[in-house]
Simulated scan of single mutants.
Amino acid sequence: MLIDLPYTPLAKRPLPAGRPRDWYITHNRRLKAMRLAIALLDSGVYAPTQAHNHKIRATADMVGIHPPSDTTCHMVRALMRYSR
């Protein structure tokens, strides 16, 4: 199947109300980690041992995402490790 249109993201929907604050923090952190992991894979970083905190933060700056915390950097490496 030939795709001739560029990728367009789906329309964002509001998050469900009534959850604890920690749920929203974890949810947004996971989304950020996934975006960063995809950006690292696209840039040629395929192993979690290559993805140091400095490299992840530089990629975030290049993509236009706020610099991630140490916890988010750890999640990025975990996603890269278990994606196989």
Rank of each mutant, 00 (worst) to 15 (best):
M1G: 15
M1A: 09
L2G: 04
I3L: 13
I3R: 08
D4A: 05
L5N: 02
L5F: 10
L5I: 13
Y7W: 15
Y7R: 07
Y7Q: 05
Y7N: 03
T8E: 06
P9K: 11
A11F: 04
A11L: 10
K12I: 15
K12G: 02
P14R: 14
L15Y: 08
L15Q: 05
P16M: 05
G18N: 04
G18Q: 05
G18P: 04
G18I: 05
R19A: 08
R19C: 02
R19F: 02
R19D: 00
R19P: 00
P20W: 06
P20C: 01
R21A: 14
R21H: 11
R21P: 08
R21W: 10
D22E: 09
D22V: 13
D22F: 05
D22Y: 04
W23A: 08
W23G: 06
Y24F: 07
Y24K: 03
Y24D: 01
I25S: 03
I25V: 15
T26S: 13
H27V: 06
N28I: 13
N28H: 13
N28Q: 15
R29G: 03
R30M: 12
R30H: 14
L31P: 02
K32H: 09
K32F: 00
K32E: 14
K32S: 12
A33T: 07
M34F: 14
M34V: 14
R35T: 08
I38D: 05
A39N: 04
L40A: 10
L40P: 15
L41G: 12
L41C: 09
D42Y: 14
D42R: 14
S43W: 01
G44V: 05
G44F: 02
V45F: 15
V45C: 14
Y46T: 10
A47N: 07
A47S: 09
P48Q: 05
T49I: 06
Q50I: 01
Q50C: 06
A51H: 07
A51T: 10
H52T: 15
H52W: 02
H52Q: 13
H52V: 15
N53F: 04
N53T: 14
H54P: 00
K55R: 11
K55G: 00
K55Q: 06
I56Q: 04
R57D: 01
A58S: 11
A58H: 06
A58R: 09
A58E: 14
A60P: 06
A60M: 06
A60D: 06
D61R: 13
D61W: 02
M62D: 07
M62Y: 15
V63C: 07
V63R: 12
V63K: 12
I65K: 04
I65E: 15
H66P: 08
H66S: 11
H66C: 04
H66T: 08
H66E: 15
P67W: 01
P67H: 06
P67C: 08
P67Q: 11
P68V: 03
S69M: 04
D70C: 05
D70Y: 12
D70F: 12
D70M: 11
D70E: 13
T71G: 02
T72F: 05
T72S: 03
H74R: 12
H74T: 05
M75L: 12
R77H: 00
R77G: 00
A78K: 14
A78Y: 12
A78D: 12
L79Y: 13
L79D: 14
M80K: 02
M80H: 02
R81N: 07
R81L: 12
Y82A: 02
R84P: 14
R84A: 09
